[in-house]
Design a protein around this nucleic acid. Structure first.
Lengths: 220, 220
DNA sequence: GAAAGATTGGAGTGTCAACTCCAGAAAAAG
DNA sequence: CTTTTTCTGGAGTTGACACTCCAATCTTTC
Protein backbone atom coordinates (compact mmCIF):
# COMPACT_ATOMS: atom_id res chain seq x y z
CA UNK A 1 0.00 0.00 0.00
CA UNK A 2 1.67 3.14 -1.20
CA UNK A 3 1.30 6.29 0.79
CA UNK A 4 1.19 9.76 -0.68
CA UNK A 5 1.88 12.47 1.84
CA UNK A 6 1.12 12.18 5.54
CA UNK A 7 -1.84 10.42 7.06
CA UNK A 8 -3.65 12.29 9.76
CA UNK A 9 -5.36 9.59 11.77
CA UNK A 10 -8.02 11.50 13.62
CA UNK A 11 -11.11 10.69 15.56
CA UNK A 12 -11.47 6.93 15.18
CA UNK A 13 -10.48 4.44 17.82
CA UNK A 14 -7.17 3.45 16.28
CA UNK A 15 -5.22 5.90 18.37
CA UNK A 16 -3.92 5.47 21.89
CA UNK A 17 -7.01 6.38 23.88
CA UNK A 18 -9.70 3.67 23.60
CA UNK A 19 -9.34 -0.02 24.45
CA UNK A 20 -6.69 -1.75 22.39
CA UNK A 21 -7.77 -3.96 19.53
CA UNK A 22 -6.88 -7.61 19.09
CA UNK A 23 -6.12 -9.00 15.63
CA UNK A 24 -9.70 -10.21 15.38
CA UNK A 25 -11.09 -6.90 16.54
CA UNK A 26 -9.03 -5.06 13.97
CA UNK A 27 -10.39 -7.36 11.27
CA UNK A 28 -14.04 -6.77 12.19
CA UNK A 29 -13.43 -3.07 12.45
CA UNK A 30 -11.98 -3.22 8.97
CA UNK A 31 -14.96 -5.13 7.63
CA UNK A 32 -17.32 -2.54 9.09
CA UNK A 33 -15.43 0.36 7.54
CA UNK A 34 -15.14 -1.34 4.16
CA UNK A 35 -18.84 -2.19 4.08
CA UNK A 36 -19.77 1.32 5.17
CA UNK A 37 -17.50 2.84 2.54
CA UNK A 38 -19.07 0.77 -0.23
CA UNK A 39 -22.62 1.54 0.82
CA UNK A 40 -21.98 5.23 1.33
CA UNK A 41 -20.37 5.43 -2.07
CA UNK A 42 -23.40 3.83 -3.70
CA UNK A 43 -26.21 5.44 -1.72
CA UNK A 44 -24.62 8.42 -0.02
CA UNK A 45 -23.91 8.88 3.67
CA UNK A 46 -27.45 9.88 4.62
CA UNK A 47 -28.79 7.04 2.50
CA UNK A 48 -27.03 4.29 4.43
CA UNK A 49 -28.23 3.34 7.88
CA UNK A 50 -26.10 1.72 10.53
CA UNK A 51 -28.31 -1.32 10.11
CA UNK A 52 -27.44 -1.50 6.40
CA UNK A 53 -23.79 -1.46 7.40
CA UNK A 54 -24.42 -4.11 10.05
CA UNK A 55 -25.99 -6.45 7.52
CA UNK A 56 -23.39 -5.85 4.80
CA UNK A 57 -20.48 -6.37 7.18
CA UNK A 58 -22.08 -9.41 8.77
CA UNK A 59 -21.79 -8.13 12.31
CA UNK A 60 -24.16 -7.35 15.16
CA UNK A 61 -25.42 -3.94 16.22
CA UNK A 62 -23.26 -3.76 19.29
CA UNK A 63 -20.10 -4.36 17.30
CA UNK A 64 -20.53 -1.16 15.36
CA UNK A 65 -20.90 0.79 18.57
CA UNK A 66 -18.07 -1.11 20.14
CA UNK A 67 -15.63 0.11 17.51
CA UNK A 68 -17.13 3.54 16.86
CA UNK A 69 -18.61 5.91 19.38
CA UNK A 70 -21.34 6.97 16.96
CA UNK A 71 -22.17 7.24 13.28
CA UNK A 72 -20.02 10.34 12.86
CA UNK A 73 -16.95 8.44 14.02
CA UNK A 74 -17.72 5.73 11.49
CA UNK A 75 -18.09 8.36 8.79
CA UNK A 76 -14.70 9.79 9.62
CA UNK A 77 -13.18 6.33 9.37
CA UNK A 78 -14.83 5.98 5.96
CA UNK A 79 -13.28 9.26 4.86
CA UNK A 80 -9.84 8.00 5.82
CA UNK A 81 -10.52 4.68 4.11
CA UNK A 82 -11.69 6.25 0.87
CA UNK A 83 -8.87 8.76 0.76
CA UNK A 84 -6.36 5.94 0.94
CA UNK A 85 -8.30 3.85 -1.56
CA UNK A 86 -8.57 6.61 -4.15
CA UNK A 87 -4.94 7.64 -3.93
CA UNK A 88 -3.76 4.04 -3.93
CA UNK A 89 -5.79 3.31 -7.04
CA UNK A 90 -3.76 5.94 -8.86
CA UNK A 91 -0.39 4.57 -7.81
CA UNK A 92 2.29 4.17 -8.93
CA UNK A 93 1.53 6.90 -11.46
CA UNK A 94 0.41 9.50 -8.94
CA UNK A 95 3.72 9.81 -7.15
CA UNK A 96 5.61 10.17 -10.42
CA UNK A 97 3.65 12.80 -12.33
CA UNK A 98 6.88 14.42 -13.50
CA UNK A 99 6.53 14.37 -17.28
CA UNK A 100 3.86 15.08 -19.86
CA UNK A 101 3.84 11.36 -20.68
CA UNK A 102 3.16 10.49 -17.05
CA UNK A 103 0.44 13.12 -16.80
CA UNK A 104 -1.24 11.76 -19.90
CA UNK A 105 -1.02 8.19 -18.62
CA UNK A 106 -2.59 9.33 -15.36
CA UNK A 107 -5.35 11.11 -17.27
CA UNK A 108 -6.08 7.91 -19.19
CA UNK A 109 -6.16 5.88 -15.98
CA UNK A 110 -8.64 8.21 -14.34
CA UNK A 111 -10.88 8.25 -17.41
CA UNK A 112 -10.74 4.47 -17.76
CA UNK A 113 -11.65 4.05 -14.11
CA UNK A 114 -14.81 6.06 -14.65
CA UNK A 115 -15.65 4.12 -17.77
CA UNK A 116 -15.32 0.87 -15.86
CA UNK A 117 -17.82 2.20 -13.36
CA UNK A 118 -20.17 3.23 -16.16
CA UNK A 119 -19.64 6.78 -14.92
CA UNK A 120 -21.60 6.01 -11.76
CA UNK A 121 -20.83 7.29 -8.30
CA UNK A 122 -18.46 10.11 -9.19
CA UNK A 123 -15.45 10.68 -6.97
CA UNK A 124 -15.60 8.79 -3.65
CA UNK A 125 -13.91 11.70 -1.90
CA UNK A 126 -15.69 14.43 -3.82
CA UNK A 127 -19.15 13.13 -3.04
CA UNK A 128 -18.31 12.77 0.64
CA UNK A 129 -16.97 16.31 0.53
CA UNK A 130 -20.11 17.68 -1.01
CA UNK A 131 -22.38 15.88 1.41
CA UNK A 132 -20.48 16.50 4.63
CA UNK A 133 -18.64 19.79 4.32
CA UNK A 134 -21.41 21.98 5.71
CA UNK A 135 -22.63 19.71 8.46
CA UNK A 136 -19.58 18.27 10.19
CA UNK A 137 -16.52 20.51 10.69
CA UNK A 138 -14.31 17.59 11.70
CA UNK A 139 -15.27 15.72 8.55
CA UNK A 140 -14.52 18.79 6.48
CA UNK A 141 -11.07 19.06 8.04
CA UNK A 142 -10.34 15.43 7.23
CA UNK A 143 -11.50 15.94 3.66
CA UNK A 144 -9.35 19.04 3.27
CA UNK A 145 -6.40 16.87 4.32
CA UNK A 146 -7.36 14.22 1.80
CA UNK A 147 -7.56 16.71 -1.04
CA UNK A 148 -4.27 18.21 0.11
CA UNK A 149 -2.55 14.85 -0.24
CA UNK A 150 -3.96 14.49 -3.74
CA UNK A 151 -3.04 18.00 -4.76
CA UNK A 152 0.38 17.56 -3.16
CA UNK A 153 1.16 14.58 -5.34
CA UNK A 154 0.35 16.53 -8.49
CA UNK A 155 2.27 19.55 -7.27
CA UNK A 156 5.34 17.50 -6.43
CA UNK A 157 5.44 16.10 -9.93
CA UNK A 158 5.24 19.56 -11.45
CA UNK A 159 7.92 20.77 -9.07
CA UNK A 160 10.18 17.95 -10.20
CA UNK A 161 9.57 18.94 -13.81
CA UNK A 162 10.43 22.52 -13.06
CA UNK A 163 13.52 21.65 -11.05
CA UNK A 164 14.68 19.45 -13.89
CA UNK A 165 14.15 22.29 -16.34
CA UNK A 166 11.26 20.68 -18.23
CA UNK A 167 8.96 23.39 -16.97
CA UNK A 168 9.69 27.09 -17.21
CA UNK A 169 11.11 28.65 -14.06
CA UNK A 170 8.16 31.05 -13.74
CA UNK A 171 5.59 28.28 -13.82
CA UNK A 172 3.49 27.98 -10.65
CA UNK A 173 3.19 24.30 -9.69
CA UNK A 174 0.98 25.12 -6.74
CA UNK A 175 -1.59 26.92 -8.82
CA UNK A 176 -1.43 24.44 -11.68
CA UNK A 177 -1.93 21.52 -9.31
CA UNK A 178 -4.88 23.22 -7.65
CA UNK A 179 -6.51 23.94 -11.00
CA UNK A 180 -5.88 20.38 -12.16
CA UNK A 181 -7.52 18.91 -9.09
CA UNK A 182 -10.46 21.27 -9.56
CA UNK A 183 -10.80 20.29 -13.21
CA UNK A 184 -10.69 16.65 -12.17
CA UNK A 185 -13.39 17.06 -9.53
CA UNK A 186 -15.66 19.10 -11.76
CA UNK A 187 -15.10 16.72 -14.63
CA UNK A 188 -16.01 13.79 -12.41
CA UNK A 189 -19.20 15.48 -11.23
CA UNK A 190 -20.40 16.28 -14.75
CA UNK A 191 -19.36 12.84 -15.93
CA UNK A 192 -21.38 11.27 -13.14
CA UNK A 193 -24.39 13.37 -14.11
CA UNK A 194 -24.22 12.77 -17.82
CA UNK A 195 -23.05 9.18 -17.61
CA UNK A 196 -20.34 9.76 -20.21
CA UNK A 197 -16.67 10.57 -19.85
CA UNK A 198 -16.67 13.54 -22.24
CA UNK A 199 -16.73 16.21 -19.49
CA UNK A 200 -13.89 14.57 -17.57
CA UNK A 201 -11.83 14.23 -20.73
CA UNK A 202 -12.45 17.82 -21.79
CA UNK A 203 -11.54 19.15 -18.35
CA UNK A 204 -8.37 17.12 -17.90
CA UNK A 205 -7.18 17.60 -21.47
CA UNK A 206 -7.58 21.34 -21.11
CA UNK A 207 -5.46 21.36 -17.98
CA UNK A 208 -2.79 19.18 -19.56
CA UNK A 209 -2.75 21.62 -22.48
CA UNK A 210 -2.06 24.44 -20.08
CA UNK A 211 0.71 22.54 -18.36
CA UNK A 212 2.25 21.59 -21.66
CA UNK A 213 2.27 25.24 -22.58
CA UNK A 214 4.63 25.83 -19.66
CA UNK A 215 7.05 23.14 -20.81
CA UNK A 216 10.38 24.11 -22.29
CA UNK A 217 10.75 22.84 -25.85
CA UNK A 218 14.31 21.58 -26.02
CA UNK A 219 14.13 21.39 -29.80
CA UNK A 220 12.94 24.98 -30.17
CA UNK B 1 -36.14 37.48 -14.79
CA UNK B 2 -33.89 36.57 -17.68
CA UNK B 3 -34.09 33.12 -19.11
CA UNK B 4 -31.18 31.20 -20.54
CA UNK B 5 -32.17 28.35 -22.78
CA UNK B 6 -35.38 26.41 -22.45
CA UNK B 7 -37.10 25.48 -19.22
CA UNK B 8 -38.24 21.92 -18.93
CA UNK B 9 -41.02 22.07 -16.39
CA UNK B 10 -41.29 18.49 -15.26
CA UNK B 11 -42.93 16.67 -12.44
CA UNK B 12 -44.29 19.42 -10.25
CA UNK B 13 -47.91 20.39 -10.15
CA UNK B 14 -47.61 23.45 -12.34
CA UNK B 15 -48.58 21.58 -15.50
CA UNK B 16 -52.02 20.81 -16.82
CA UNK B 17 -52.85 17.66 -14.89
CA UNK B 18 -53.45 18.53 -11.22
CA UNK B 19 -56.02 20.97 -9.81
CA UNK B 20 -55.48 24.50 -10.99
CA UNK B 21 -53.90 26.97 -8.59
CA UNK B 22 -55.37 30.27 -7.53
CA UNK B 23 -53.16 33.31 -7.13
CA UNK B 24 -52.97 32.64 -3.41
CA UNK B 25 -52.19 28.98 -3.94
CA UNK B 26 -49.40 29.86 -6.31
CA UNK B 27 -47.95 32.20 -3.70
CA UNK B 28 -47.91 29.58 -0.94
CA UNK B 29 -46.45 27.05 -3.30
CA UNK B 30 -43.74 29.57 -4.07
CA UNK B 31 -43.05 30.18 -0.40
CA UNK B 32 -42.70 26.45 0.21
CA UNK B 33 -40.26 25.99 -2.66
CA UNK B 34 -38.20 29.03 -1.67
CA UNK B 35 -37.99 27.91 1.95
CA UNK B 36 -37.10 24.37 0.93
CA UNK B 37 -34.43 25.63 -1.48
CA UNK B 38 -32.80 27.73 1.22
CA UNK B 39 -32.81 24.97 3.80
CA UNK B 40 -31.58 22.32 1.38
CA UNK B 41 -28.78 24.61 0.30
CA UNK B 42 -27.68 25.11 3.91
CA UNK B 43 -28.20 21.63 5.32
CA UNK B 44 -28.46 19.39 2.29
CA UNK B 45 -31.54 17.60 0.99
CA UNK B 46 -31.36 14.71 3.44
CA UNK B 47 -30.70 17.15 6.25
CA UNK B 48 -33.95 19.07 5.84
CA UNK B 49 -37.22 17.52 6.93
CA UNK B 50 -40.60 18.45 5.55
CA UNK B 51 -41.36 19.80 8.98
CA UNK B 52 -38.38 22.16 8.78
CA UNK B 53 -39.76 23.40 5.49
CA UNK B 54 -43.21 23.72 6.99
CA UNK B 55 -41.93 25.92 9.80
CA UNK B 56 -39.68 28.05 7.58
CA UNK B 57 -42.42 28.66 5.03
CA UNK B 58 -45.00 29.34 7.71
CA UNK B 59 -47.51 26.82 6.40
CA UNK B 60 -49.21 23.71 7.73
CA UNK B 61 -48.31 20.10 7.04
CA UNK B 62 -51.19 19.50 4.70
CA UNK B 63 -50.26 22.43 2.51
CA UNK B 64 -46.98 20.84 1.54
CA UNK B 65 -48.77 17.67 0.53
CA UNK B 66 -51.46 19.65 -1.18
CA UNK B 67 -48.96 21.21 -3.59
CA UNK B 68 -46.53 18.30 -3.87
CA UNK B 69 -47.31 14.62 -4.04
CA UNK B 70 -44.31 13.72 -1.92
CA UNK B 71 -40.90 14.94 -0.87
CA UNK B 72 -39.36 13.93 -4.20
CA UNK B 73 -41.74 16.21 -6.07
CA UNK B 74 -40.74 19.05 -3.77
CA UNK B 75 -37.08 18.29 -4.40
CA UNK B 76 -37.64 18.46 -8.14
CA UNK B 77 -39.31 21.84 -7.73
CA UNK B 78 -36.29 22.95 -5.72
CA UNK B 79 -33.98 21.84 -8.53
CA UNK B 80 -35.94 23.93 -11.03
CA UNK B 81 -35.97 26.86 -8.61
CA UNK B 82 -32.22 26.75 -7.96
CA UNK B 83 -31.34 26.33 -11.61
CA UNK B 84 -33.24 29.50 -12.43
CA UNK B 85 -31.79 31.29 -9.43
CA UNK B 86 -28.20 30.41 -10.22
CA UNK B 87 -28.42 31.31 -13.89
CA UNK B 88 -30.34 34.50 -13.16
CA UNK B 89 -27.70 35.56 -10.66
CA UNK B 90 -25.16 35.51 -13.48
CA UNK B 91 -27.24 37.61 -15.85
CA UNK B 92 -26.85 39.74 -17.82
CA UNK B 93 -23.24 38.62 -18.20
CA UNK B 94 -24.00 34.97 -18.80
CA UNK B 95 -25.90 35.46 -22.03
CA UNK B 96 -23.19 37.70 -23.45
CA UNK B 97 -19.98 35.78 -22.81
CA UNK B 98 -18.67 36.71 -26.24
CA UNK B 99 -15.38 38.43 -25.45
CA UNK B 100 -12.42 37.90 -23.17
CA UNK B 101 -13.48 41.00 -21.25
CA UNK B 102 -16.94 39.52 -20.67
CA UNK B 103 -15.49 36.19 -19.63
CA UNK B 104 -13.21 37.89 -17.14
CA UNK B 105 -16.07 39.97 -15.75
CA UNK B 106 -18.08 36.79 -15.34
CA UNK B 107 -15.17 35.10 -13.58
CA UNK B 108 -14.96 38.03 -11.16
CA UNK B 109 -18.67 37.89 -10.50
CA UNK B 110 -18.60 34.20 -9.69
CA UNK B 111 -15.59 34.59 -7.40
CA UNK B 112 -17.14 37.58 -5.65
CA UNK B 113 -20.34 35.68 -5.09
CA UNK B 114 -18.45 32.96 -3.28
CA UNK B 115 -16.56 35.49 -1.23
CA UNK B 116 -19.82 37.08 -0.15
CA UNK B 117 -20.98 33.69 1.04
CA UNK B 118 -17.73 33.17 2.91
CA UNK B 119 -17.15 30.24 0.58
CA UNK B 120 -19.94 28.31 2.26
CA UNK B 121 -22.43 26.06 0.54
CA UNK B 122 -20.66 25.57 -2.76
CA UNK B 123 -22.76 25.52 -5.91
CA UNK B 124 -26.52 25.21 -5.27
CA UNK B 125 -26.88 23.05 -8.36
CA UNK B 126 -23.65 21.14 -7.92
CA UNK B 127 -24.43 20.05 -4.39
CA UNK B 128 -27.90 18.92 -5.39
CA UNK B 129 -26.30 17.03 -8.26
CA UNK B 130 -23.85 15.27 -6.03
CA UNK B 131 -26.46 14.31 -3.47
CA UNK B 132 -29.23 13.22 -5.82
CA UNK B 133 -27.66 11.84 -8.98
CA UNK B 134 -27.40 8.25 -7.82
CA UNK B 135 -30.68 7.96 -5.99
CA UNK B 136 -33.33 9.63 -8.13
CA UNK B 137 -33.13 9.23 -11.93
CA UNK B 138 -35.75 11.93 -12.54
CA UNK B 139 -33.78 14.37 -10.42
CA UNK B 140 -30.62 13.49 -12.30
CA UNK B 141 -32.36 14.19 -15.61
CA UNK B 142 -33.51 17.59 -14.37
CA UNK B 143 -30.01 18.40 -13.18
CA UNK B 144 -28.51 17.37 -16.50
CA UNK B 145 -30.90 19.85 -18.12
CA UNK B 146 -29.86 22.55 -15.69
CA UNK B 147 -26.18 22.04 -16.40
CA UNK B 148 -26.95 21.97 -20.12
CA UNK B 149 -28.52 25.41 -19.92
CA UNK B 150 -25.46 26.69 -18.11
CA UNK B 151 -23.02 25.08 -20.48
CA UNK B 152 -25.13 26.27 -23.41
CA UNK B 153 -24.79 29.89 -22.37
CA UNK B 154 -21.00 29.61 -22.24
CA UNK B 155 -20.91 27.73 -25.53
CA UNK B 156 -23.08 30.30 -27.29
CA UNK B 157 -20.72 33.07 -26.25
CA UNK B 158 -17.73 31.18 -27.58
CA UNK B 159 -19.59 30.42 -30.79
CA UNK B 160 -20.30 34.12 -31.22
CA UNK B 161 -16.63 34.87 -30.75
CA UNK B 162 -15.68 32.30 -33.34
CA UNK B 163 -18.30 33.47 -35.83
CA UNK B 164 -17.07 37.01 -35.40
CA UNK B 165 -13.51 35.87 -36.04
CA UNK B 166 -12.23 36.57 -32.53
CA UNK B 167 -11.68 32.87 -32.00
CA UNK B 168 -9.79 30.65 -34.41
CA UNK B 169 -11.97 28.65 -36.78
CA UNK B 170 -10.66 25.34 -35.46
CA UNK B 171 -11.54 26.15 -31.85
CA UNK B 172 -14.10 23.82 -30.28
CA UNK B 173 -16.66 25.90 -28.33
CA UNK B 174 -18.49 22.79 -27.20
CA UNK B 175 -15.43 21.27 -25.60
CA UNK B 176 -14.17 24.54 -24.17
CA UNK B 177 -17.55 25.28 -22.60
CA UNK B 178 -17.73 21.81 -21.09
CA UNK B 179 -14.24 22.14 -19.62
CA UNK B 180 -15.04 25.60 -18.29
CA UNK B 181 -18.17 24.37 -16.52
CA UNK B 182 -16.19 21.47 -15.08
CA UNK B 183 -13.45 23.81 -13.86
CA UNK B 184 -16.10 26.00 -12.31
CA UNK B 185 -17.79 23.12 -10.51
CA UNK B 186 -14.54 21.63 -9.26
CA UNK B 187 -13.29 25.04 -8.22
CA UNK B 188 -16.48 25.64 -6.28
CA UNK B 189 -16.21 22.31 -4.50
CA UNK B 190 -12.61 22.88 -3.42
CA UNK B 191 -13.40 26.46 -2.49
CA UNK B 192 -16.25 25.26 -0.33
CA UNK B 193 -13.95 22.76 1.37
CA UNK B 194 -11.06 25.10 1.96
CA UNK B 195 -13.14 28.18 2.70
CA UNK B 196 -11.03 30.30 0.38
CA UNK B 197 -11.50 31.31 -3.23
CA UNK B 198 -8.01 30.30 -4.39
CA UNK B 199 -9.10 26.99 -5.98
CA UNK B 200 -11.97 28.62 -7.85
CA UNK B 201 -9.71 31.39 -9.09
CA UNK B 202 -6.97 29.01 -10.18
CA UNK B 203 -9.45 26.79 -12.02
CA UNK B 204 -11.28 29.58 -13.83
CA UNK B 205 -8.15 31.54 -14.67
CA UNK B 206 -6.60 28.45 -16.19
CA UNK B 207 -9.62 27.93 -18.41
CA UNK B 208 -9.69 31.58 -19.46
CA UNK B 209 -6.00 31.26 -20.33
CA UNK B 210 -6.83 28.35 -22.60
CA UNK B 211 -9.65 30.21 -24.27
CA UNK B 212 -7.48 33.26 -24.74
CA UNK B 213 -4.94 31.07 -26.42
CA UNK B 214 -7.52 30.35 -29.11
CA UNK B 215 -8.18 34.02 -29.76
CA UNK B 216 -6.92 35.65 -32.91
CA UNK B 217 -4.53 38.49 -32.14
CA UNK B 218 -5.48 41.20 -34.58
CA UNK B 219 -2.30 43.10 -33.79
CA UNK B 220 -0.04 40.10 -34.46
C1' DG C 1 -5.49 -21.85 34.19
C1' DA C 2 -7.58 -18.00 36.16
C1' DA C 3 -8.37 -13.18 36.16
C1' DA C 4 -8.93 -9.25 33.19
C1' DG C 5 -10.17 -7.38 29.26
C1' DA C 6 -11.87 -7.55 24.45
C1' DT C 7 -15.51 -9.19 21.51
C1' DT C 8 -20.14 -10.60 20.23
C1' DG C 9 -25.47 -11.28 19.96
C1' DG C 10 -29.69 -9.39 19.89
C1' DA C 11 -33.61 -7.53 22.14
C1' DG C 12 -35.20 -3.04 23.47
C1' DT C 13 -35.90 2.28 23.59
C1' DG C 14 -36.91 6.88 22.33
C1' DT C 15 -37.08 10.07 18.69
C1' DC C 16 -38.01 11.84 14.47
C1' DA C 17 -39.43 11.83 9.69
C1' DA C 18 -42.70 11.10 5.92
C1' DC C 19 -47.10 10.88 5.03
C1' DT C 20 -52.50 10.52 5.94
C1' DC C 21 -57.05 12.18 7.18
C1' DC C 22 -60.74 15.03 7.81
C1' DA C 23 -63.12 18.94 8.78
C1' DG C 24 -63.53 23.84 8.28
C1' DA C 25 -62.35 28.51 5.91
C1' DA C 26 -61.70 30.99 1.72
C1' DA C 27 -62.23 31.72 -2.95
C1' DA C 28 -64.06 30.97 -7.70
C1' DA C 29 -67.87 29.70 -10.80
C1' DG C 30 -72.62 29.82 -12.06
C1' DC D 1 -76.48 33.59 -3.34
C1' DT D 2 -75.36 28.87 -3.96
C1' DT D 3 -72.52 25.42 -5.50
C1' DT D 4 -68.17 23.75 -6.37
C1' DT D 5 -63.46 23.75 -5.89
C1' DT D 6 -59.34 25.13 -3.74
C1' DC D 7 -56.91 26.10 0.43
C1' DT D 8 -55.64 25.52 5.27
C1' DG D 9 -54.96 23.58 10.21
C1' DG D 10 -53.46 20.16 12.94
C1' DA D 11 -53.98 15.71 15.12
C1' DG D 12 -52.70 11.05 14.18
C1' DT D 13 -50.28 6.89 12.04
C1' DT D 14 -46.54 4.13 10.57
C1' DG D 15 -42.08 2.96 10.08
C1' DA D 16 -37.20 3.67 10.29
C1' DC D 17 -33.18 5.00 12.49
C1' DA D 18 -29.49 5.94 15.90
C1' DC D 19 -28.23 4.30 19.88
C1' DT D 20 -28.42 1.48 24.65
C1' DC D 21 -28.05 -2.50 27.62
C1' DC D 22 -26.65 -6.67 29.39
C1' DA D 23 -25.36 -11.16 29.32
C1' DA D 24 -22.45 -14.49 27.03
C1' DT D 25 -18.12 -15.84 24.87
C1' DC D 26 -13.69 -15.59 23.13
C1' DT D 27 -8.35 -13.73 23.84
C1' DT D 28 -4.82 -12.11 26.11
C1' DT D 29 -2.07 -11.68 30.20
C1' DC D 30 0.30 -13.16 34.18
Amino acid sequence: MTRTGTRTDTADETDGTGPRLTRKGLATRGRIVAAAADLMFERGVAGTSTDDVRAAAGVSTSQIYHYFTDKNALIRAVIAHQTDAVLDAQEPLLSRLDSMAALRAWRDLVVDLQRQRHCEGGCPIGSLASELSEGDPQARADLVDGFARWEGAIRDGLHAMRDRGDLRADADPERLALATLAALQGGLLLTQMRRETAPLEAALDSMLDIIERWTVTTAG
